[in-house]
Write a protein that binds this DNA or RNA. Structure first.
Lengths: 162, 162
DNA sequence: GATGAAAAGACTAGATT
DNA sequence: AATCTAGTCTTTTCATC
């Protein structure tokens, strides 16, 4: 799907505040509210915008412990298999197949250290996991929950505009 | 700040769809719309809800390449120093101090491999970085952009409710 | 094909009970 | 916390470019 500059600005505005009104957005992109709504509807149905979410302070809701775990797997473990396993474990908030020594990297979040330990234990019990290497998060320095949109299409070379 | 079960359900509903109306939420938690708004306002001003954002498919906006990079730093590099550096680099979408061999883990997102390379190069140029170890993401299997809320306070032991 | 204008219905936000 | 009310927003329809 092709995104024109107005689409991009609308997406950026919705990333900043997903609850802003169409009228508000329209004001900033010089379009009427219905026109904005039509574009947003199209962006949603085409999958560019997957949804809207509230950004919640993990600590405030009791989610204080997290870790990144490198997974070493048996010979031929498929990404689909890994994905299915990741989805089975509710503590998994991110999972990626990666290059390098390990086969996958899993991002775990738990309420406390014992919860993390329990989640890790369950993960290690997966039949295809041969070993793991854990990196416990000591402090979260930065976390951009939504991918920032490219502001300058074609000119940017790997660095998102602020 | 204390969250009662209704607060938690409201948060969960807003995480599912940050654009749902107060009336809609009120229906599902058996409260009037104004009552829901008051609670949401309180959650926002107390910092439990930090904001609302649109979830955008990174690929759809040209953000196709990512990596996790372990940072090895000089003797005494402070978390504050790391954080400041991370914020200077727009490709950094996540940064954590960690236990284990490395001192920090940085999550990078770029438009393509050359963008990633460039971002990595800049990161390595930071004076406190002695070496790095990169894990290029081959495929994103799972990514829960918002931390899931605990549904059963006190009973859950490290695993978020679905 | 996309935009703007207008109208009906729904929602928000503040005051009151 | 619910109700009420005025003002605003959303959403559909329709005409226009």
């Amino acid at each position: 799907m092709r995104l024109d500059p107005i689409d991009q600005r609308i997406i950026a505005l919705l990333q900043e505040d997903a609850r802003s009104s169409y009228a508000e957005i329209g004001e900033r992109v010089a379009l009427s509210a219905p026109a904005v709504k039509r574009r947003v509807d199209r962006l949603r149905s085409s999958g560019v915008i997957r949804g809207y979410t509230a950004l919640v302070d993990p600590g405030a809701v009791g989610w204080t412990t997290e870790a990144f775990v490198e997974l070493f797997c048996t010979g031929r473990t498929s990404p689909a298999q890994l994905k299915a396993a990741a989805l089975r474990h509710p503590a998994v908030v991110g999972a990626y197949t990666i290059s390098g020594e390990a086969d996958a990297l899993v991002h775990l979040r738990a309420m406390d250290m014992s919860g993390l330990e329990e989640a890790l234990e369950k993960l290690r019990a997966e039949p295809f996991v041969t070993s793991t290497r854990s990196m416990i998060v000591l402090s979260r320095l930065v976390e951009t929950l939504a991918p920032r949109i490219v502001q300058d299409v074609g000119t940017a070379k790997g660095s998102p505009a602020s």
